[in-house]
């Protein structure tokens, strides 16, 4: 069972895998302009990983999703989010230091992509955290299932 599912599921997964990942990154990237955000986009990317894991099993992935790398990236995302929160601690915790400052993300046009202050950076941090966290949970569950099946 750990080798995956039928040919139909595998073929559809090959077509849709990259499309789902690109849509998830779009949702994260435009989180401060359109509906969505870091959590939602990360969940969409993680659902693409879940689709690949269910369709191919751990054998078909060939180590493309490294579990230890994913867990390290999750902590990188969490620490980036916390660091961005502490960056504004001179005024208040979670103060938006970059908004209306005229620097990189500090434009005054609310419809531009490079606006919103620290909001896009926080979107990327939370998105990275959610997608790698949920993907590592799924990989751990599939590996545990395979170990118990062989014993």
């Amino acid at each position: 069972m750990s080798s995956g599912m039928s040919v139909i599921v595998r073929t559809v997964t090959r077509f849709t895998y990259a499309l789902i990942i690109v849509f998830g990154f779009y949702v994260i990237m435009h989180g401060h302009l359109t509906p969505g955000g870091g959590f939602q986009g990360g969940a969409v990317v993680a659902s693409a990983f879940a689709l690949a894991l269910v369709a191919f099993g751990t054998a078909g992935l060939k180590g493309a999703l490294n579990r230890h790398l994913l867990q390290s990236l999750e902590e990188v995302g969490a620490l980036a989010f916390l660091g961005l929160a502490f960056a504004g601690v001179g005024t208040a915790f979670f103060y938006n230091i970059l908004a209306n400052s005229g620097s990189v993300f500090g434009g005054s046009d609310p419809a531009a992509l490079a606006s919103g202050g620290v909001l896009p950076l926080m979107n990327w941090a939370v998105g990275l955290k959610v997608m790698t966290g949920i993907a590592s949970i799924l990989i751990i569950m599939v590996i545990g299932a395979r170990k118990e099946a062989t014993e």
Partner: peptide
């Protein structure tokens, strides 16, 4: 509420189903 709709479609419809299918294999 399109924000909640995207979160519900990602978490509820995709990830929960995948976790249940992985659990059903055991």
């Amino acid at each position: 509420a399109p924000d909640v709709a995207i979160a519900e479609a990602g978490i509820g419809a995709a990830l929960t189903t995948a976790i249940y299918i992985i659990a059903l294999r055991r």
